[in-house]
Design a protein around this nucleic acid. Structure first.
Lengths: 198, 198
DNA sequence: AAACAATACGAACGGTCGTGCTATCTTCAT
DNA sequence: ATGAAGATAGCACGACCGTTCGTATTGTTT
């Protein structure tokens, strides 16, 4: 029976802060995050929020981790429960488009935004974003390999995975930038064409 | 014989500032741009740079305009000189991948980065970015329509244009984030599959 | 009860931001 | 030659940034 009341309290406010942080960062970026803004909006003291993470960079890393958990619970975990090969590949696509369209994060896909923000900057934040993005790309690729091995589709699995990932991200980008849902419809049509049975 | 020497001088430093501004913004975003930083790096006074644009937002808008001109000169204009239909469509794809891969902007495609940065924020900067992005998307779409009308390819032109645009942007994103050139090779293979003659 | 640990706060720090005001210097028009 | 117009510089401002410090509060341990 652990449950140190002090640590529990800390983790609780930590979670409150991070829940807001991922939403803020999905719109204004991880640089747009500010201790003072978070503290004001959540009616906490700036120094209290700061002490909870130790530095701004640690807050950014914790925010990425929190976003990753949400992303996994919406997209990866449900898809991993679907039978391997084509069905799972379809689930990944549909879950991802749904995750973007439903605005699980108000600024659209969290990792699309922070990926573009930190793609050309060195540092721990870049590495964390690249790792998160890369692990999802690997999940798509592995599923595509299975789908081809099972004879569900006929294609180069690496190219197929790249295409599906590209279509999803483009739909997210266009829809968030221009509004409307047309981009999602286009992505679904293109994905279906790619995933037509062998 | 216009050429007011005063205005000419202003335009000259304006161009110097904007050339640096597009590079900075492609890495650190249009929010990462700062008057003080630009002034220091270019050995100008902060107030001088400020006076040249009137406000930070005007500087951002001017930076977008400058980037658009560079983008057009590398991608759009040469492609528009190629014969319509499939050849022009191929030229767009190849020019764009080349523009990304050669790092015309050090952070990769300028509009990919600032598009992700401002996609979910209202205001004039968002509108300018959306307009620039939209006009390029329209150019691809119109070219795809021609290619289909000429019988060069057999596809839904709107979906085809969406796919090609998506593949290019994904290659840029992956290559800048993870380094290497594999993403460009994957994009080229996928594009070629899409553009196989009818 | 006493000693310790963690959260949370308020005030202050040095720094940078965008933005004004004012003055100087260059170029043009008369 | 004189004065207006534009470019550029210097300086100061208020706001916000991340960070540090001291301290009160709450909870755990002995």
């Amino acid at each position: 029976m652990p449950a140190d009341g002090r640590l529990a309290r800390g983790d609780a406010t930590r979670r409150v802060v991070l829940r807001r942080a991922v939403d803020v960062a999905s719109v204004d970026g991880l640089d747009g995050l500010s201790l003072g803004r978070l503290a004001t909006e959540l009616e906490l003291s700036k120094s209290g929020v700061f002490a909870l993470f130790g530095s701004k960079e640690e807050l950014q890393l914790a925010t990425i981790e929190a976003a990753l958990e949400i992303f996994r619970s919406y997209v990866v975990t449900p898809a991993a429960a679907v039978s391997p090969g084509l069905p799972r590949l379809r689930a990944i696509c549909e879950n991802w488009l749904d995750y973007s369209e439903k605005r699980v994060f108000p600024g659209g896909c969290f990792f699309f935004n922070v990926g573009a923000e930190f793609d050309a900057r060195p540092g721990r934040v870049h590495d964390a974003v690249a790792a998160a993005s890369g692990s999802f790309a690997a999940f798509i690729r592995e599923t595509a390999v299975e789908a081809v091995a099972l004879g569900h589709v006929d294609a180069d699995p690496e190219v197929l995975a790249f295409e599906l990932h590209a279509l999803g991200r483009a739909a997210n980008a266009d829809a968030v930038l221009n509004g409307g849902t047309r981009a999602y419809a286009l992505a679904r049509r293109a994905m279906n064409a790619r995933l037509a049975g062998a």
